[in-house]
Amino acid sequence: MTAAISVSGLVKSFGRTRALDGLDLTVAQGEVHGFLGPNGSGKSTTIRVLLGLLRRDAGTARLLGGDPWHDAVTLHRRLAYVPGDVTLWRNLSGGEAIDLLGRLRGGLDAGRRAELLERFELDPTKKGRAYSKGNRQKVALVAALASDAELLILDEPTSGLDPLMEKVFRRCVSEERDRGRTVLLSSHILSEVEALCDRVSIIRAGRTVETGSLTELRHLTRTAVSAELAADPTGLENLPGVHDLVVDGNRVRCQVDAEHLDALLRAFGRSGVRSLTSRPPTLEELFLRHYATEVTA
């Protein structure tokens, strides 16, 4: 199976600012891929390069087997896009904008359009300016989801949606995945990424810092452990791979690298364990760790 998106060593500069600095991204066909990064890290720039709106300075980028710059028109027939900041034509109604965007791509399924309008509770008769941010996003979402594109590129599509609508959105994306579509989902809502995505790429300052399935990422990283021991523990601070250790009498809290978990548990065992909880790091912890490295480094 070929990759829907494969990008390597992508570089894009705007004047002196290097927005993308050797970015890698691979999205397999049929997967929902989370694309994470702090503000200004280059997520939207990457997407705009993939859409052929920006020209890459260096590196390779393949999209659905074609070149995103040269084959833009033919490739766009097979994808649908929801921008992070949707602006609509002020004198076109939402329904007109949905129809136009769908027809440009070769037509919309009228039944699916009606169903999506109902699910997202969107009034299609309002004019562009009258919509709130969330409703403008719904217009773009309905247009994208009602198309039969094989690839959906969604740039922070839920940043203006309320929690109920976000739930609708999640259900829609899982349905799309079940129908075999590929989704690139750039998002800040980590619970959303955790719930929807098969694999995740985390980028920072225009570079990919981590990529893989959530399980892989968790495996590579630290586990949060808290324990109540029979006796006060000794020598924990000398164990390799133990971080943020807090010892309060016989209570211990710490983070431990996955490969050193074993050693820690043996150390606990020497003191005798009364209770023990360990939990895999949340995506938020993963995320924060990657973002925070700049500050601590």
């Binding site: 709106l53 833009a72 028109v73 766009h76 602006t87 965007l101 440009l104």
Partner: peptide, 14 residues
């Protein structure tokens, strides 16, 4: 510049 060209050009429009 106001972002309205983007969704059109993300479609199969040269």
């Amino acid at each position: 510049t106001e972002g309205r060209a983007e969704p059109v050009l993300a479609g199969p429009v040269s």
